[in-house]
Write a protein that binds this DNA or RNA. Structure first.
Length: 239
DNA sequence: GTTGAGCGTT
């Protein structure tokens, strides 16, 4: 997988993790390796992937051996066009281990200032301030589906337990007929669906007991509506 | 087939 070559993450002695964001979903560690390796010694590169789909999340972690090299890579690779997309390189913050905290300037390699009139602010990450968008659409869209599917295959015993719940029961029953019915009334207009052939419950070959829902009957009942009609005209003053 | 802010182990 994203492993660099060994069957596991290398020991974190003094390696610094860089977070690469804004990379294409098809970019792999192998693609970033030659890019980052050119600026310093890359210890390992890891790209978190989705366990359901297996696709990369769009960001990768590049582990450098020295901070100065990592910093250099950040300045050089940050904003670099990769696969047609600009990848943002920055030091990892929430790493599994705060290895970054161990950064010591006395190493000697830090001779060069990290500031170096870098044009970091030039791009500015604020341009993405509109992050209000969905965080992980794929994650959310796949979650419910997975759970639902498994729930069915789960075990009949569990289903029964849920059936007892009035809420679940009603939902499940309606869910089955929901899509079908909605299709008919999918008309752009607000016209109510014309009742074709009233379903004779007695002649129904299949058991449609579920159809008999108190809600449906309630729908027919519109006490409010009647009240309204009789308000304006029917109102006949006795005196 | 899609997506686009963020933070990591198969």
């Amino acid at each position: 997988m994203s492993r660099f070559g060994r069957s596991g993450p290398p020991p974190i002695r003094d390696t610094y993790s860089l977070l690469v964001l804004n990379i294409t979903f098809r970019t792999t560690a192998d693609d970033l390796f030659p890019l980052f390796d050119k600026y310093g010694e890359v210890v390992d590169i890891y790209i978190p992937r989705d366990r359901r789909t297996g696709d990369s999340r769009g960001f990768a972690f590049v582990r450098y051996k020295y901070e100065d090299e990592a910093q250099k890579a950040v300045d050089r690779l940050d904003g670099r066009l990769v696969d047609g997309r600009e990848m943002m390189v920055q030091f990892a913050k929430y790493g599994p281990n705060a290895e970054r905290m161990y950064r010591d300037d006395h190493r000697g390699r830090d001779s060069r200032r990290r500031s170096r009139s870098r044009s970091g602010d030039r791009y500015g990450r604020d341009r993405y301030r509109e992050r209000d968008h969905h965080r992980r659409s794929r994650s959310l869209s796949a979650s419910p589906d997975d759970y639902k599917r498994r729930g069915r295959d789960r075990s009949p015993s569990r289903s029964r337990s849920r059936s007892y719940s009035p809420d679940d029961d009603r939902k499940g029953g309606r869910d089955s007929l929901s899509p079908a019915r909605r299709s008919t009334s999918r008309s752009p207009r607000k016209t109510p669906p014309p009742r074709k052939t009233p379903p004779p419950r007695e002649g129904s070959p299949a058991r449609r007991n579920d159809d008999r829902s108190p809600v449906g009957r309630n729908d027919d009942r519109s006490p409010v509506r009647r009240n309204d009609d009789r308000s304006p005209g029917s109102r006949s003053p006795s005196t």
